[in-house]
Every structure is written in structure tokens, then in C-alpha cells.
């Protein structure tokens, strides 16, 4: 006897016995119960399957997307080394960038050095400001002041990056030109533009990290007779350090990947920067300005894809660092 028959028997018996006396099952004879319907999934169950399926599909789509971005960029980026036989070590260390001339002229060191230089300098300048604003918002100011600064940082995030580039071009470059001579284009200009762009990123994440410090830590420190600053320096900042580092890395990731604003002020000359105001090129600026000038599948084009791959790898490294610090911070 299968389950359906069993169920039918039980239902029939129950109806015959009227086991639940106050529930009158009017017009319900033993044969009126549709066992098929009782044992099938309900409409709601179907909807549940469909709904759940839709959400699975959406999340799957995003994962496929990320995998294919990495796959496509990786495939084209590696072509330089596999198809064109460029030496990886040479690619990373040589400053000779002229891929049109053949495989011995594909050296990305200039772009790598400049990219790291602007990123590190921007983070270095922005971090003290970001921590100061975050401290002011969480430890010093009234609610009104904090929400005012909150809007300030949100506005800074909202300004499009080309607008920053344009401002750099029309304000910062002329100032540098008069102060230091030369063209004004270079690492200094890029650093200043990036400083404003990463400031809100680092600030808002630092605010979160300071807010996460339990207030009884502060009270305990105050009760010991510490001054406000001693409390901040020895207690609040100590506890929040891992997450502040995470914030700085997020800011650096943004600076490293920023393309147009940097491209507008860096000068776009593949020359090793010998000071902060000599024109140079970053990975992103080179990609932006040269991608349209090369033909798909040729060495100059493949070399550019290798730069893109380098950007992608660095973005993954930044993510990995954030994870690493997060794990250590939990301990």
C-alpha cells in the first residue's frame, strides 16, 4: 500500500468518526476529499520555488559576470606573454615602453611605479585628514555638526571623477606650474586630485570603525582620569586600528583604479618620474589614452591588456589584504 492510499484511509476514517466534534464537516462524505490535491505541492509552494529560483538566478548571473571578467581580461592579458613571448620579468622591470617596436620593448615599470606612487602618496595625505574628520564626527562634535560633515563627505563622493580631473586641470596644474615650473603635469597633481577623491571613502569607513568601539571603553578610560585625547589615542584608536587600515586600503584601491581624473593631470608621457612634477603615466592613464589607438590582437594591444590584467590583479590583492586584516582584527 502506498502513502497516498494510506493518507486517504486516515482522512476517510477521520471524517467517518468526526473526531473533532466542534468542526462540522458538512457535505463531506468519505469520497469527497481530493487526495491528489492534498498530496500535491500547493500554489504557494510553486511560487516559493519560482521566487527562490529567481533570486538564485540573479546571484548566479553576478557570479558568472565576475568570473568572466577575470577570465576575459586574464586571457587577453596573458596573450602578451604566451603568444608574443614577452618575458614577464622584463615586462615588470623594464622602463622601455614601445610595444609597436617588438617584444623587447614591452616594459611597464614606469606605469607600475607611477601608479603605486600616486596611490601611496594620496593615501598618505588623505589618511590624517580622514581620521581627523572621523574623530571630530564621533568624539567631538554635536549631532548637527556630524550630520553636516556627513553631507560634506557624501557630496565629495557624488562629484563625478571627470569633474575632479577638470578642476585639477584648471586649478591645480596652473598653481604647480607657477610654483615649480615645468608643465605642471605629474605625480603631485595626480596626488592632489586623488587625495580629494579618496578622502570621503576613507572617512566614512573610519567613522564606522570608531562608532564600533564600545562606549564603556571610553568611560573606563575617563574614569581612570585620562584626558579626552589620551582616551582617543590610547583606547579608541588602538581598538579601531585594524578597521582604519581596512579603510585606508579601500581608499588606495579606489586611487589605484581611478582612470580619467588621473589621465587628465598626469601628463601621459611614458617616462620614469624623476620628481613629483615631471610628466608620467599610470596603468589606468595609459589604458585610457592608448586603447583606442591599437588594433585588437596585435602586440601593442595585448600589452595594454596586460596592463589591465595588472590592474585587476592589484584590485584582487587589495581585496585580499582587507580580508586578511579583517581576520586578524577579529582575533
Amino acid at each position: 500500500m502506498n502513502d497516498k492510499d494510506k493518507l486517504k484511509e486516515v482522512v476517510d476514517q477521520a471524517i467517518a468518526d468526526q473526531q473533532v466534534p466542534h468542526v462540522k464537516l458538512k457535505k463531506m462524505g468519505p469520497s469527497s476529499v481530493d487526495i491528489e490535491k492534498l498530496t500535491k505541492p500547493s500554489k504557494e509552494t510553486h511560487q516559493e520555488y519560482w521566487g527562490k529560483g529567481l533570486t538564485y538566478f540573479a546571484i548566479g548571473l553576478i557570479i558568472v559576470l565576475v568570473v568572466s571578467i577575470i577570465g576575459f581580461v586574464g586571457y587577453h592579458g596573458l596573450a602578451t606573454f604566451i603568444d608574443n613571448h614577452v618575458n614577464v620579468f622584463h615586462f615588470l622591470t623594464s622602463t622601455d615602453w614601445d610595444p609597436g617596436e617588438g617584444k623587447n620593448h614591452v616594459g611597464a615599470a614606469v606605469m607600475i611605479v607611477t601608479s603605486f606612487a600616486v596611490t601611496l602618496l594620496a593615501a598618505l595625505v588623505a589618511t590624517p585628514f580622514a581620521v581627523a574628520i572621523a574623530l571630530y564626527m564621533t568624539e567631538y562634535s554635536s549631532k548637527k555638526g556630524a550630520s553636516f560633515l556627513q553631507s560634506v563627505t557624501e557630496l565629495l563622493v557624488g562629484i563625478p571623477s571627470v569633474v575632479y580631473g577638470f578642476l585639477g586641470l584648471t586649478i591645480i596644474i596652473p598653481v604647480i606650474r607657477t610654483l615649480f615650473g615645468g608643465t605642471g603635469f605629474g605625480i603631485l597633481a595626480a596626488t592632489l586630485v586623488l587625495f580629494v577623491m579618496v578622502l570621503p571613502t576613507i572617512t566614512s569607513l573610519t567613522v564606522d570603525s570608531l562608532k564600533a568601539v564600545p562606549s564603556h571603553f571610553r568611560k573606563a578610560s575617563m574614569a581612570l582620569g585620562a584626558t579626552h585625547w589620551q582616551t582617543i589615542y590610547h583606547v579608541v584608536l588602538r581598538v579601531a586600528t585594524p578597521r582604519i587600515l581596512t579603510a585606508v586600503i579601500f581608499g588606495m584601491a579606489r586611487a589605484f583604479g581611478e582612470a580619467l581624473a588621473v589621465q587628465m593631470v598626469i601628463g601621459n608621457a611614458v617616462l620614469m618620474p624623476y620628481n613629483l612634477v615631471s610628466p608620467s603615466a599610470t596603468l589606468t592613464s595609459q589604458l585610457t589614452s592608448q586603447m583606442g589607438n591599437t588594433v585588437m590582437g596585435t602586440l601593442p594591444n595585448n600589452a595594454l591588456w596586460s596592463l589591465a590584467l595588472l590592474l585587476l590583479i592589484m584590485s584582487l590583492v587589495f581585496n585580499f589584504l582587507v580580508k586578511l586584516i579583517g581576520k586578524r582584527g577579529q582575533k
Binding site: 571578467i69 576575459f72 589604458l287 586603447m291 585588437m296 584590485s315 587589495f318 580580508k323
Partner: peptide, 27 residues
Amino acid sequence: LIRTTIQILSSLPSIVVGLFGYLLFVV
């Protein structure tokens, strides 16, 4: 893993995303 993937996508430089779009759709 899914959250990490989404985080990676959000921190990818927009120029890389644009170049991927160029590769896939334009070419």
C-alpha cells in the same frame, strides 16, 4: 564566497569593467 565575489566586482576599477564591456559587446 558570494559576498567576496560581489565585493571584488564593486572594487574593480571602472576602466577595467569598461574594457571588459568593450571586449564582450563591442568586439
